[in-house]
Structure formats: C-alpha cells, structure tokens
C-alpha cells in the first residue's frame, strides 16, 4: 500500500448534499417566478435582478476579503439567493443606486455584521427591503403596471397594487365590492397580472417553486402551510363578519407578498425555527401579524414586517420548544 490508511469517526458516508446544492435548489425553485416577472415587467425585472444579485455577491466578497479578512465563500450560493430574494421584493422600476444600497444593507448589516451565513437572526433580503421601504418610501411604493417589454425601465407606467387600492378605498369609506371592480379578478391575480414587487405577483410560478423544493426535500411543508393557513383562517373570519369592510381570504392569499413570503422568505433556514412544532407556531405568527398590519395597520402590506418580527422570536422558540424525545412519554400497549 502506498499511502497511510485514513482513520476517522463514523459515519463514513454522506448524502452528498451540501450547502451549495441546497442553495442551487432554491435558485432553481425561484426560476419560474423570475420568468413570470420578466414576462410581466420586462426590462425592469432583468435590470433589478441583475443589479441586486451582482451587488450582493460583490458586497459579500469585499466584506469577507477586506473587512473580515477571512475565507471568501461567495461560491456557496447564499449571496445569490439573498440577491434574488431582495430583487423579488422590489418594484421593477427602482433606480439602480437604491438597489445597490439595499444590497449593501442586506449583506452588510443583515448578514455579515452577525458573522455571515448561519448567524444572522433576521432574513437579510428582508432587512434590505424594509430598510429601503423606510428610507425611500416614495420610490418603494411606486408600482409599475405589468406591461412586459412594451415600456422601458425608467418610463414604466405605474399604478396602485390591489392591496393599496383596498386600503385607500376602505379608508375613504368605500365598499369592498365596489373596490373589487377596480382590481384584476382572482384568476388574473393567480397568474400574476397585477402591480406589485417584481417577484411576488405570480402565485402560480411561486407554487411551482414550492412543489419543486418539497420534492427535492429542501424545505418542509410546515411553515408555508402554517402561514397561508392562518392568513386564510383569520381573513376568512373577518370576511364572514363583514364582507363589505373586509376582502375575501383568497384575495389576501394572492395579493402582496404572501406567497413569496410564505414559500421563500419565511422558510429561510437560518432565520426559521429548528423543530416542526415551532415552525408551525412561527408560521401562524407570521400569518396573524400580516393580517393585523393589512387590516388595522398603516401599511397596506405587512408580510415583510411580520416575518422580521417572528424572526426575532426564533432563538426563543429554539430554546423553549424541543422535539418530542424518544421515550419521553411512555405509553405501552
């Protein structure tokens, strides 16, 4: 024998799955939604996505190489995922410099300041998004109307989102049934034909990504089902109480960032709980807070805030909610 035998602890085999492959899986799952947003928002979608992804990778590289002076891990794909998710949460006509600021905040403050991948308490993309929402409220709430490649990047025609129409209308004392005439019907919303952040509109495309991730065992069903289920239940109760003041549950599920949030943002490994039981509580928390913000809050949309708020509770849930241990409760038959 030419070389020495290797000795290591068991197990001696591995699934072969690694962080890189998981991240690649998430990126693949995001492709349908990306195609949909390019279809609806044309050049804007391409420019916003490219800017966001490239600047996320750039900032991660610069920070790791020159600030932390540690190993550079941009190849693990987590910066690409953050960049994509940040882009999906932005309007497709957002000026490039704002996107770059968002990427810097997402990577620099949201991720690297806590020690990089695996250590950040809050979803980096959402940190970037909310930072921009508060800093540039006008640009961040000017939504282009879906028009494909017919209009350019800067001169896109803008309009309100369905949620914005609803909030504004109810504030002015209008009836929900009247407001529904001003917005696309549910089927159109399901395909994504409405104003909104570039990646969140196409529920169908996002669901395809969800199924892919379930099949590939990248995520479990717990969080998305808990989020959408609790939103449907909560808004359903409100709708039954007063259908003229409150929109129906399906409307709430298909509008805004619910689908994107429930499937891609809330399921972020790092910032979601470890135990299925806690995942469900976390999902319900997101759903309830989202509805509270939408119905009673000042903002028309609240998924981002809801996820960030629940992110803050994750360490607590991990400490308190334990998986059911084998042999904990003995029931013998």
């Amino acid at each position: 024998m030419s070389s020495l035998l290797t000795v290591s602890q068991s197990p001696h085999i591995h699934t072969g799955d690694d962080t890189k492959k998981l991240m690649r899986g998430v990126i693949i799952a995001l492709i349908p939604a990306f195609i949909a947003s390019v279809y609806y928002f044309g050049w804007g979608a391409l420019i916003v996505t490219a800017t966001s992804v490239l600047s996320c990778i750039f900032f991660e590289y610069v920070i790791q190489k020159y600030l932390i002076r540690g190993p550079v891990t941009i190849t693990d794909g987590s910066a690409i995922v953050t960049g994509l998710l940040l882009a999906f949460n932005l309007p497709s006509n957002l000026p490039v410099h704002i996107i770059i600021i968002g990427a810097l905040v997402a990577i620099g403050i949201g991720k690297m300041s806590f020690g990089g991948l695996g250590n950040n308490p809050f979803n980096p993309a959402l940190v970037g998004r909310v930072f921009l929402l508060i800093s540039f409220p006008v640009q961040m709430t000017t939504w282009p109307v879906p028009s494909g490649f017919k209009t350019g990047y800067a001169d896109a025609v803008t309009g309100a989102t369905p949620l914005g129409v609803l909030k504004e209308g109810i504030r002015n004392g209008e009836q929900v049934s009247q407001l529904m005439n001003q917005i696309p019907d549910h089927m159109q919303m399901f395909y994504g034909h409405m104003g909104g952040s570039m990646g969140e509109v196409a529920a169908l495309a996002l669901l395809i990504g969800f199924v892919y991730m379930l099949v590939k065992k990248i995520i479990t069903w717990h969080i998305p089902v808990a989020v959408t289920g609790s939103i449907a239940l909560f808004t359903g109760i409100l709708w039954l109480i007063n259908p003229e003041k409150n929109a129906d549950p399906l409307f709430h599920l298909l509008t805004g960032g619910v689908m994107l949030g429930a499937i891609f943002m809330a399921t972020d490994y790092v910032t979601s709980p470890m135990v299925p039981k806690a995942m469900i509580i976390y999902g319900i928390g997101i759903g309830v807070i989202t509805v509270i913000i939408r119905v009673y809050g000042a903002y028309p949309e609240g998924v981002s805030f809801a996820i960030l708020i629940m992110n803050a509770f994750v360490p607590l849930m991990n400490a308190w909610i334990k998986p059911k241990r084998f042999g904990e409760e003995v029931k013998n038959g």
């Binding site: 070389s3 020495l4 035998l5 290797t6 000795v7 290591s8 602890q9």
Partner: peptide, 15 residues
C-alpha cells in the same frame, strides 16, 4: 495512519 476529523486532541483521543 492518517487522522481525518476534528483537529482537537480530546476528539482524536476518543477515536
């Protein structure tokens, strides 16, 4: 032989 694993004496010693 060649040890492959966590480079800590306390862990190699167990093995």
């Amino acid at each position: 032989s060649a040890y492959d694993g966590v480079k800590e004496c306390r862990i190699a010693h167990l093995l």
